[in-house]
């Protein structure tokens, strides 16, 4: 175990705050276990920086189990550092140092998109996603007794698609990967999740207009169907959800309750 250690050169984006300009700084780090996770490697870097009396690198993280959507770093030009060209994409916290070789130079940057301003170093403000959800990513459930379960049959196909779309953790890798900084995959995942289930029907036509309207208003780019987003999505949200969004949007143009 102890034989498998790495000596690495890290090129890390350092930016003191939202308004200050940032730049890449280089750090050497040694003795990193191949069994450690990428974030544990950054923890070690921060200990080293603290000992040296330097400011530690700020980065987002929370569960470190790949389910919360908090972590997110662009590693060597790929959001979360992996992408499906090598393996199934994962979150940054599920990326392990065994994926790197001794002597590697690793470039570490924050998500870059106008609607995701950098707060500090690698931490970005992703509250734009919350605003898109607030615009329509919900169902209104009237209070009262629970409805009889068999009254709302859902086909297995739709239930599966809705569930797959619902696994989106809102990490923002789709936006980070997109050459247009589009948030369509995130928006489409919620549209698909709610639009395929009975509870989502009453607001379906309005939801897509409101969410895509908010998405555009917040300054995200448009979709070119390139597929970069789906290729880095740690939850493998498929690109076809975006076509689902477009179908719902086209359908909403012909619906009275789709007036916005």
């Amino acid at each position: 175990m102890s034989d498998n250690t790495l000596n690495l050169t890290l090129r890390v984006w350092r930016q003191p705050n939202r308004n200050a300009p940032g730049k890449i700084e280089e750090y050497k780090i040694s003795g990193i276990s191949t069994d450690s996770s990428f974030l544990e490697m950054l923890d070690e870097l921060n200990e080293q920086l603290t000992v040296e009396g330097k400011e530690p690198v700020a980065f987002d993280h929370d569960c470190r189990e790949g389910i919360c959507g908090m972590c997110g770093i662009v590693i060597n030009g790929v959001p979360h550092g992996r992408g499906n060209s090598l393996d199934t994409p994962t979150t940054t916290c599920q990326l392990h140092m065994r994926k790197f070789k001794n002597g590697d130079v690793i470039t570490i940057e924050p998500w870059r998109a106008a609607p995701f301003p950098v707060i500090k170093d690698l931490a970005v403000d992703r509250s734009a996603f919350d605003k898109i959800i607030q615009a329509g990513g919900y169902v209104s459930v009237p209070t009262g007794a629970a409805p009889e379960a068999h009254a709302n049959a859902v086909s297995k196909l739709k239930a599966d698609r809705a569930f797959d779309a619902a696994t989106c953790i809102g990490c923002g890798a789709c936006v980070a990967a997109c050459p247009n900084s589009s948030g369509m995959l995130f928006t489409a995942a919620k549209i698909t999740h709610l639009g395929l289930l009975p509870q989502g029907q009453p607001e379906r036509a309005l939801r897509v207009k409101r969410m895509i309207g908010k998405h555009d208003e917040l300054g995200f780019g448009g979709c070119q169907n390139l597929g970069e987003c789906a290729a880095v999505c740690p939850k493998s949200i498929p690109l076809d959800t975006i076509s689902q969004l477009n179908r719902d949007l086209i359908a909403s143009l012909f619906k009275g309750d789709g007036k916005h």
Binding site: I24, N76, G77, G83, S85, T107, E109, L226, E228
Partner: peptide, 9 residues
């Protein structure tokens, strides 16, 4: 980005 790779495009 200082380094950006495209995977699928």
């Amino acid at each position: 980005y200082t380094v950006k790779k495209t995977i699928k495009q």
